[in-house]
């Protein structure tokens, strides 16, 4: 391995890297361009003309708002459930030893390893067996299965790095359980929970497969987009929605990135 920081990569490698990045990101730009096209039935290149009218059209379509509201609601509730249950589970698994601990750890992680279609089918048949009608909560339940894993993994890694005697030290110095959680546990796992929560939110927000099995007639935003692509009418509306979603999700992701970066440095230097 060369560790010389000044050594420059060969020109061919630079070109390959640039090409790779462009390949990944040009399609995103294309989506943005099609949001302004005047052709509404097919994706024609180059666009015959440019217009901003699709923004107004999108704004006035109630089905967009309904789908967006449902997606936000499902993602928010799933993330909240995941943060609470994932953290508790991580605390139990990393801070105490009990019979079946490894099994529980494996079972918690399993949903993210399972193909979504398996999770979807099994949940759907379970719901119909138990006569549970489809609702927001059936979608939330489906999403929570994999959201928990993301939070759990983040929290477990942080708990392993946090020494157990720190909590004992807090008790020893006169703090009760609540004070210890508030002043010692939370600041030490906070950034991990934030990162896990952001990821869980993002996973839930664009989930399609599990949702198709647990949503019934309801439409989350990704499902709405999928349906919309099939219909040859007002296609650019989909692109407008996609563009807004990209721009809006970029901000919290950037925020999470900077927050956890600083947090990791602080937590790491304490070791």
């Amino acid at each position: 391995m060369r560790s010389d920081r000044n050594s420059s990569a060969p020109i061919a490698l630079k070109i390959a890297a640039a090409a790779g990045l462009l390949f990944l990101h040009i399609p995103l730009l294309l989506i943005f361009v099609y949001a302004f096209t005047t052709e509404e039935k097919s994706y024609q290149w180059p666009p015959p003309g440019l217009t901003a009218k699709w923004f107004a059209v999108t704004w006035n379509r109630p089905d967009v708002w309904e789908a967006l509201a449902l997606s936000l609601k499902v993602a928010a509730i799933s993330t909240l459930i995941a943060i609470i249950l994932g953290t508790l589970c991580a605390a139990a698994v990393s801070r105490s030893k009990f019979f079946g601990r490894e099994t529980i750890s494996l079972l918690v992680i399993l949903p993210i390893a399972l193909p979504g279609i398996i999770t979807g089918i099994s949940l759907r048949s379970a719901f119909s067996l138990m006569n549970i009608p489809f609702s927001t909560w059936t979608i939330v339940l489906g999403h929570a299965t994999f959201c928990i894993v993301v939070v759990y993994n983040n929290a477990v890694a942080r708990f392993r790095r946090t020494s157990g005697s720190m909590i004992e030290a807090s008790y020893d110095l006169g703090a009760d359980g609540f004070q210890t959680f508030r002043h010692i546990v939370l600041p030490n796992i906070g950034t991990a929970l934030l990162a896990g929560g952001m990821l869980a939110f993002a996973l839930s927000f664009d989930e399609v497969i599990v949702t198709t099995f647990t949503a019934g007639q309801q439409q989350t935003l990704p499902i709405w987009m999928l349906e919309e692509l099939v219909r040859p009418r007002q296609r650019p509306v989909t692109n407008v929605v996609a563009m807004v979603v990209v721009l809006v999700t970029l901000l919290p992701i950037l925020a999470a990135y900077y927050l956890t970066r600083d947090g990791d440095q602080t937590a790491g230097s304490g070791k």
């Binding site: 020494s163 005697s165 720190m166 004992e168 030290a169 807090s170 010692i184 600041p187 030490n188 304490g270």
Partner: peptide, 10 residues
Amino acid sequence: VFQDYALFPH
């Protein structure tokens, strides 16, 4: 006084 000191890193 703990063996590993158990100082609060944050």
